[in-house]
């Protein structure tokens, strides 16, 4: 049983699609953002994911816009940030949370992410948390068998 979140940290990987047009893999993936955290379920595989902070900003961008390259081309990113964002999207793609969108390349306005040459949010490295075994997770008592300061699905560290 994999109960600890598996923080996926790959090396810098270019996204598989040249066009870099992506969409959320509905209806297989369901997601909700609440209180600064996005939670996702892969209903086919029974896998639970979550991310917060910059991950949520990137996710909300992805829900509205498909063009990943255009996001990366914004002049506000530092090189290291571009790499981290690219890696994050790559992880989402590897986990089949997002899939290539076959539609035409669209020109999208990403300018809302910056103001006066600065990001409109505080950047932190986006981290995808992964919990692989939903059946076991669902058996956890969400009051007594979880970390008090994190809650379900983080199991109590005995």
């Amino acid at each position: 049983m994999e109960t600890q979140p598996n923080i996926v940290r790959g090396s810098y990987i270019c996204l598989k699609q040249e066009k870099a047009m992506y969409r959320v893999n509905h209806p297989r993936i369901v997601h909700e953002t609440i209180d600064g955290e996005t939670v996702l379920l892969d209903l086919n595989k029974g896998v639970y994911f979550s991310f917060d902070a910059t991950g949520v900003v990137l996710w909300e961008h992805l829900e509205k816009f498909k063009n990943f390259e255009q996001l990366l081309s914004l002049p506000v990113w530092e090189d290291a940030q571009r790499e981290e964002i690219s890696r994050f999207y790559s992880q989402l793609e590897d986990e089949e949370i997002i899939v290539s969108d076959p539609g035409p390349v669209t020109q999208e306005d990403c300018s809302y992410l910056m103001e006066g040459g600065q990001l409109t949010f505080t950047y932190t490295c986006p981290v995808l948390n992964k919990y692989s075994d939903m059946q076991d997770l669902l058996l956890l008592d969400p009051i007594h068998e979880v970390e008090k300061d994190q809650g379900w699905p983080k199991p109590l560290n005995k």
Binding site: E32, I34, L41, L138, P142, G151, W152, P153, K154
Partner: peptide
């Protein structure tokens, strides 16, 4: 935090 966990749990189930 645990109430949020219960919310997540209910959403998932």
């Amino acid at each position: 935090a645990r109430l949020k966990g219960i919310y997540r749990n209910s959403w998932s189930k």
